[in-house]
Design a protein around this nucleic acid. Structure first.
Lengths: 288, 288
DNA sequence: ATCACTTACGGGTGACGTAAAAATC
DNA sequence: GATTTTTACGTCACCCGTAAGTGAT
């Protein structure tokens, strides 16, 4: 049997042309490589090289052997790649989101159901998410609509409702109960966390005349909000998870347009649905 | 990099189901195999087995890995096979004949042109020869006609003319100069060496009423001929190469039918023609 | 008790590197 | 003289086998 290191050596010699160059590439000494090539010829019981005193060149047989060697080495690389990535798919769950809201709920509930699973999260545009799901870059994606495709199933996950966060001395604070329409605040300047996914498009449509000041860091943003008289945004999810706690002085006024409510659906392939069945059931029951 | 022995071990475990059985198959100890499987998992950084205290089973990842392993092992076998057989084709020349006459000429001339070449000879029916040439079982075949096919070239090689070998006291011996026709000897009993290829068919057609006593061994046949009053066969080739010497008392009477002369052609693939160019030129010049 | 796997320990093969020689450019 | 391959020799890694241990059937 020809061991892999011999095939690798042969491929390197084929590639480099000389033993010395190949030895350097392989990070072994040149005599070691010379021996390996002799050993390979011994195993095959075939001459692979034209040898002169200080020159060694692959002959036709050697080139054929080197081609096979290259092919086998690629197979081996493929194997390592495929096995590792399959194993990864068992231990990792890559989830893509179109908005930060569900990202505050899903990873936590997944971790509760499957403590052994490593969950990765990321936010992308919905087209990217759909394509990534098809191509197995994501195990699951969170969208604003069910994805109706062959082999893919979608489940309703949760909804998120948008609020305006107003300082207590602002006129709007009085409207905490009855709410406000987008058009009433269009033109105002808002503070907002960066990267809110789908909400960017909604705000661009509904309050086109507003300026929105973005802040990358959530803690910094909270600090600014607490000392600022500017309006900001919140949602039922963000309020319940941290806004109430970290921007305690603020009044949250619900937006009354239907565009201020988004329904989220999780979409995944059938085989993932099977793997996540416990979580899906839990989500469905929480929803009731 | 995963060495081949690890892949072989994995494939054996996959095949045998238990480490002990696989170890026996591989002719190594069971602890050694246990270690190898651990090493493989270490290299891949992946679990390949479900392990209980006294049971080890491939998990899904392991089955995927084992499939790859089998594939790579087959590739390696293919490589050895292909390289050896290519090398063989450089050093061996397998020639198939339809008659023994050319077999007395061709191997000797080939050996003179290419002393480094190992030449193998064998006699077969012409259909078998044509197929064998196509499928590379023969490097060259000797036929009674040129082979007109894509990628195959044919050259005229030599002709062979049939004689009747008669004891000096036989009536026929007087006809040494003028010759004799097949029909004149049809019905007579002949002594003949076994395995004369194409000549069997010619004789079956031209002297259907004759009995032909076959003898496997040439030396034995010569001895019988020298002490027998039966007729026998000879040809210009056999006469010049050994009949004159080993059956010295005999008179050789030429057969006058055109069927008694056969022209031989060597057929080979284009690449073989290139390899044998020196020999082909020599044959052509001898022919002139 | 037997079977199947793992752990522990010692041994030998063989792959490696260094050094030096031979030969070509 | 520089480069390339081969030969020689000592070293060390690692793969193996034996023996012992653990747990399940």
């Amino acid at each position: 049997m020809i061991e892999m290191y011999l095939l690798e050596a042969l491929a390197a010699v084929d590639e480099c042309g000389t033993l010395s160059a190949a030895a350097e590439k392989l990070r072994i000494s040149q005599p070691a490589l010379s021996r390996s090539m002799k050993k390979l010829e011994g195993i095959l019981n075939v001459e692979l090289f034209e040898r002169t005193k200080n020159r060694i060149t692959l002959n036709e047989t050697g080139r054929i052997a080197a081609d096979y060697a290259g092919k086998i080495l690629r197979s081996e690389k493929d194997m390592v790649q495929a096995v590792r990535s399959y194993d990864n798919s068992l231990h990792m769950l890559s989830v893509g989101y179109c908005a930060p809201g569900p990202m505050r709920i899903v990873p936590a509930t997944l971790a509760r159901c499957y403590p052994e699973l490593m969950v990765t999260s990321g936010m992308y545009k919905e087209e990217v998410l759909a394509r990534g799901l098809r191509e197995d870059q994501f195990s699951m994606v969170i969208l604003t609509h069910p994805l109706e495709e062959e082999g893919i199933v979608s489940h309703y996950l949760c909804s998120e409702h948008l609020y305006v966060s107003a300082p207590p001395d602002n006129e709007l604070a009085k409207r905490e109960k009855e709410g406000v329409y987008f058009r009433e605040v269009d033109g105002q300047t808002f503070l907002q966390i960066a990267h809110v996914g789908i909400w960017d498009e909604i705000k661009a449509r509904m309050i086109p005349h507003s300026r929105i000041i973005l802040q990358e860091d959530q803690e910094t943003l909270n600090a600014i909000i607490n000392t600022s008289s500017l309006l900001a945004f919140a949602s039922d999810i963000s309020i319940s998870t941290f806004r109430r706690k970290y921007t305690p002085g603020r009044v949250f006024v619900p937006l009354l347009d239907e565009e201020a409510t988004v329904r989220f659906y999780c979409a995944m392939k059938k085989r993932t649905e099977k793997k996540l069945s416990r979580w899906i059931e839990a989500i469905v029951s929480e929803e009731e």
